[in-house]
Design a binder for these strands. Structure first.
Length: 768
DNA sequence: ACACGGACTTAGTATAGTGAAC
DNA sequence: GTTCACTATACTAAGTCCGTGT
């Protein structure tokens, strides 16, 4: 399309308009901002005015083009096949080389049995694995598991419309059920969710012939509560199943899935990650996603493409169906794919996290981040210089790089209108950044997954000035802060330093670097538990850097209070023990005044409160116990004789009485104790013994305190994301070895498998 | 040169599993 | 042995980035 007339320019995407000209920016930054060259203002203005409209226009056009493309698809497929064969030829040489290597490695390691741990392929000992774009030479697998067909609900479980039960065709009932199962969740209260769900529900209803009883038109008249109740009951039923039955069901399922769990890659058994097709349901988009609540439709084999080697046996599709396509592309790392209907994107069945291919790319990722070590100084010097560049583009690049480097922002690609409005560095807008002179910047925006990024931070003086320039009038809310940038421009700049260097590498680098620094601060002393807490604290620093958040679990507040009460109780017990010591030997107080000082720190009111609580708990416990016992007896009522039943009830009553007596004794004793602080001590009790008990309690208190603090600090921070994705696992392995902390305390089983390469290759001296 | 989509990583949450506390 | 609360895993949404075709 020619770009001559201004009318057509209006319809062009924004970025292309501005990117063409590298305007010289206002140098006199100190600072009459209105002094911007006229030309630039004009361009910006037009951009600002057209900001919203053309975006949408472009999108619409895109959609129409999409349809045409689908027609062309067939041609494309044949083309792709050609492409693949070409690639394969290109790599033939390497292939031969690899085969040779493989044989030798097999020879080196004979007599291994196929099922044991030693079977793990040690790819990290084979340098050749790290090059080339060929991912595999042979690949066999058993395909994928489809979700079970829909089973209609019992007749009595109906949707109520306008108060009256209505029957629905199975496919429509299924969709209604998806919503019905969710009515207690936040999603179901979201108007967008409701609207999208209802729209798609009506669509399915129409497709399937509608309801005979009523024409369903209004969401407000639908009552899903019968459905909800039904699902709840089913859930309860399932939960109440006897353990052995649960186990049986689980094992049966596992057996059925067994063959899908694994595939054969270059002859080696490797785990498959997600071997199940995603079941239909309502799309749970995060944040303010415009499509949230839409029906995610059932996927059929006809929509599925399998990927395996040419000679591999093609797993048979479910009865009465055919695979959409069978492909043999050894340049990719997926076993099957399908297209989902929400945003028409592709979903893949991929290898497990402990697989060779995932391991290799993980390893490469961290090595790339480590390579950045050698360039980061130069990069930083350059961007500091460039912050003052005369070219607007360069200033923006420098400023963005600063933000990515210092605040670990993501690249921030452009998003379309039918996704949640979230941003990263390049897509930051006017309203996301506030300036607070002299040099404080407040970031407030929604990042990936609509997680809020809020930070009030001190920034480099020049960065502050630049942002002020980037926000200068006529820019207004809704406009891009970096109007000359997108991730590809930034990444091109990065790769001029180091091929393959991109924005996300900075995140990995700074995360692992931070972890290394934090670990270096930890003294090699204390218990294993203390070291783990310190490790987690280091981990937490990284998580905060990356803004990895999680929502507080609903029982959190109560849990903290409970723990605090527990600590109080232990302190009280300790005080009590110390009083006993003094009762045994008054002279102790003079010998160790500090030791006994805490006795006076416990006000009598507080003590009474604690004692009350302890007794209350005892009582509750007894009550619960007797209730449970009774239930147990009633459960077995049918399988025992009446006599036996009576007998057991009688024993229960007796036991209850015994407990009550015991409780009352204790009650009396504690009450008395709190009054006069006199204790019944057995004649064999000694100061030493009591000292020992105090020490133990002190340990427990310290431990619980540590745990509590850890828990509070972690309540809104997700440690796992950085542990899994950003912190070089060799750091953790080195820490484990150097500090004698069992790796199991730092890595779960899944992570130990995922990071087998790191566990094998790092010693206590390893550094990022 | 650039829009697009494919392929892959990164992310929070729902749920299953588990082990400590009673 | 049961419950409860947390932890680990499963799931799938939502990013990044690159190659490709136009």
């Amino acid at each position: 399309m020619p770009v001559s007339s201004s009318g057509e320019d209006e319809d062009k995407p924004l970025k292309s308009l501005t990117r063409r000209n590298n305007h010289v920016i206002d140098l006199d930054e100190d600072d009459d901002y209105e002094d911007t060259p006229l030309k630039e203002v004009k361009v910006r203005k037009r951009k600002a005015e057209t900001a919203k409209k053309p975006r949408k226009k472009v999108k619409k056009e895109k959609k129409e083009v999409k349809k045409e493309k689908e027609v062309k698809k067939e041609k494309k497929v044949t083309k792709e096949k050609k492409k693949v064969t070409k690639k394969v030829k290109k790599e033939v040489k390497k292939e031969v080389k690899k085969e040779v290597k493989k044989e030798t490695s097999v020879k080196q390691d004979p007599g291994k049995d196929s099922d044991s741990q030693s079977d793990v392929y040690r790819w990290w000992e084979n340098e050749d694995e790290l090059e080339g774009e060929i991912k595999w030479h042979t690949l066999q697998h058993h395909g994928i598991i489809f979700p079970p067909e829909y089973k209609p609900l019992p007749k009595r479980v109906k949707l109520l419309y306008d108060g009256k039960p209505v029957s629905l065709p199975p496919s429509a009932e299924e969709v209604a059920g998806f919503f019905g199962a969710m009515i207690q969740t936040e999603h179901a209260k979201n108007p967008v969710f409701q609207k999208n769900f209802f729209h798609d529900f009506l669509e399915v209803l129409k497709e399937s012939g509608g309801s005979p009883e009523a024409e369903i038109k209004e969401f407000e008249k639908c009552d899903f509560s019968l459905m909800y109740a039904h699902f709840e009951k089913e859930r309860e039923k399932k939960k109440a199943l006897p353990p052995q039955e649960k186990r049986r069901i689980r094992e049966e399922k596992a057996k059925l899935e067994e063959k899908y769990r694994f595939c054969l890659l270059d002859g080696r058994k490797e785990q498959v990650g997600n071997f199940r097709i995603e079941p239909p349901g309502l799309f749970r988009g995060r944040g303010a996603h415009p499509k949230t609540g839409k029906l995610k439709r059932r996927v059929y084999p006809e929509q599925v493409t399998l990927n395996l080697d040419e000679k591999a046996h093609v797993p048979s599709p479910p009865r009465g169906h055919n695979w959409g396509e069978v492909r043999h592309d050894n340049t990719v790392a997926w076993l099957a794919m399908w297209r989902e209907n929400i945003s028409n994107s592709v979903k893949y069945v991929r290898f497990g996290n402990n697989s060779t291919l995932k391991g290799i790319s993980d390893f490469k990722k961290f090595e790339k981040a480590r390579a950045l070590k050698d360039y980061i100084d130069a990069i930083r010097i350059d961007y500091k210089k460039k912050l003052k560049s005369e070219l607007m583009l360069d200033r923006q690049i420098a400023t963005a790089t600063y933000l990515i480097d210092v605040f670990a922002l993501r690249a921030g690609g452009e998003k379309s209108d039918d996704e949640a409005d979230t941003v990263g560095c390049c897509s930051l807008r006017y309203e996301h950044v506030f300036l607070k002179p002299p040099s404080t910047v407040i970031f407030d925006f929604l990042g990936k997954d609509s997680v809020r990024f809020y930070q009030e931070v001190e920034v480099d003086k020049q960065v502050f000035k630049n942002i002020r320039i980037f926000k200068k009038s006529p820019k207004k809310p809704g406009d891009d802060l970096f109007d000359r940038l997108d991730p590809s421009i930034l990444n091109k700049y990065f790769s001029s330093y180091l091929p393959g260097l991109t924005a996300k590498v900075f995140r990995t680098y700074n995360a692992s670097k931070t972890m290394q620094e934090q670990l270096d601060l930890i003294p090699n002393e204390g218990t294993v538990n203390e070291k783990v807490v310190r490790f987690n604290a280091a981990n937490r620093e990284v998580a905060i850097l990356c803004n990895h958040q999680r929502s507080v679990t609903k029982g959190f507040e109560a849990g903290v209070q409970k723990m605090n009460e527990k600590i109080e109780e232990m302190r009280w017990r300790k005080t009590r023990l110390k009083r006993m010591i003094l009762q045994l030997d008054k002279k102790e107080k003079k010998k160790r005044p500090d030791y006994f000082a805490e006795i006076d720190e416990l006000p009598i009111e507080k003590e009474k409160e604690i004692v009350e609580r302890v007794l209350e708990k005892d009582k509750e416990r007894d009550e619960k116990w007797s209730l449970r016992e009774k239930q147990k007896i009633n459960w077995e009522k049918k399988s025992i004789t009446t006599e036996e039943y009576e007998q057991r009830l009688k024993t229960l009553e007796e036991d209850k009485k015994k407990r009550k007596v015991k409780y009352e004794e204790k009650h009396k004793q504690l009450k008395g104790e709190t009054k006069n602080h006199k204790y019944d001590l057995s004649s064999s009790m000694t100061v030493e013994k009591l000292d020992g008990q105090v020490e133990k309690l002190e340990e427990r208190i310290a431990n619980t305190n540590l745990q509590l603090k850890d828990r509070e600090d972690n309540s809104t921070v997700a440690l796992s994301t950085s542990k899994v994705n950003y912190i070089d696992p060799r750091l953790t392995v080195a820490f484990s070895k150097k500090f004698d902390v069992p790796l199991e305390k730092l890595f779960t089983k899944a992570l130990r498998e995922k990071f087998a390469w790191a566990i094998e290759s790092a010693d206590e001296k390893w550094r990022f």
